Computed example of a mutant assay.
Amino acid sequence: MSRTKLAIIGVGLIGGSLGLCLKAALGEKIHITGLCRTEESMRAAVECGAVDEASADLAAVVGEADIVYLSPPVLQIVPMVKRILPYLKHGAVLTDAGSTKGDVYEALHEILPPHVYYVPGHPMTGREKSGVTAATKDLFVHKAYVIIDDPSVPQEIKERLMALLKHTGANFTTLDLAQHDRCAAVISHVPHLAAAALVTLLNRSGDDLNSCLKLIGGGFKDTTRIASSNADMWADICMTNRKPIADALRELRTILDEVAMAVEAGDRQAVHDYFAASKERRDGILHDAEQKFDTN
Score class of each variant (00 low, 15 high):
Lys5Leu: 11
Leu6Ala: 05
Ile8Pro: 01
Gly15Gln: 04
Gly16His: 02
Ser17His: 08
Gly19Thr: 10
Leu20Gly: 10
Leu22Tyr: 06
Lys23Trp: 04
Lys23Phe: 04
Lys23Leu: 12
Glu28Thr: 14
Ile30Asp: 06
Arg37Phe: 07
Ser41Thr: 15
Arg43Ala: 14
Arg43Asn: 10
Ala44Pro: 00
Ala45Gly: 08
Val46Thr: 12
Glu47Tyr: 01
Cys48Phe: 03
Glu53Pro: 03
Ala59Met: 10
Ala65Cys: 07
Val68His: 07
Pro72Ala: 11
Gln76Pro: 01
Gln76Lys: 09
Ile77Pro: 02
Val78Phe: 04
Lys82Pro: 04
Lys82Ser: 14
Pro86Val: 11
Tyr87Ala: 10
Tyr87Trp: 10
Leu88Ile: 06
Leu88Trp: 11
His90Ser: 13
Gly91Thr: 12
Gly91Arg: 09
Leu94Gly: 05
Leu94Met: 10
Thr95Asp: 09
Gly98Tyr: 00
Ser99Gly: 13
Ser99Val: 08
Thr100Val: 08
Leu108Asp: 10
Glu110Asp: 11
Ile111Gly: 01
Pro113Met: 11
Val116Met: 08
Pro120Ile: 07
Pro123Ile: 12
Pro123Gln: 07
Met124Thr: 10
Thr133Ile: 07
Lys137Arg: 14
Asp138Leu: 02
Phe140Leu: 04
Ile148Arg: 09
Asp149Thr: 11
Asp149Lys: 12
Pro151Leu: 14
Ser152Trp: 03
Ser152Asp: 12
Ile157Trp: 07
Lys158Glu: 05
Glu159Gln: 14
Met162Phe: 13
Met162Gly: 09
Lys166Ser: 08
Thr168Asp: 03
Asn171His: 13
Phe172Ala: 05
Thr173Gly: 03
Asp176Tyr: 08
Leu177His: 07
Asp181Ile: 02
Ala184Gln: 05
Val186Cys: 05
His189Gln: 14
Pro191Lys: 00
His192Glu: 01
Ala196Cys: 04
Asn203Asp: 06
Arg204Pro: 00
Ser205His: 03
Ser205Arg: 10
Asp208Trp: 11
Leu209Glu: 01
Leu213Trp: 01
Leu215Met: 15
Leu215His: 05
Lys221Phe: 00
Ser228Met: 08
Ser228Cys: 05
Asn230Arg: 00
Asp232His: 01
Ala235Pro: 00
Ile237Leu: 01
Cys238Ser: 10
Ile245Tyr: 01
Ala246Val: 08
Arg250Thr: 11
Asp257Met: 08
Glu258Ala: 15
Ala260Thr: 10
Gly266His: 14
Asp267Lys: 15
Asp267Ile: 06
His272Phe: 15
Lys279Tyr: 04
Lys279Met: 01
Glu280Ile: 02
Arg281Asn: 12
Arg281Thr: 14
Arg281Val: 06
Leu286Tyr: 13
Leu286Phe: 14
His287Arg: 14
Asp288Tyr: 01
Asp288Thr: 12
Ala289Tyr: 13
Glu290Leu: 13
Phe293Glu: 05
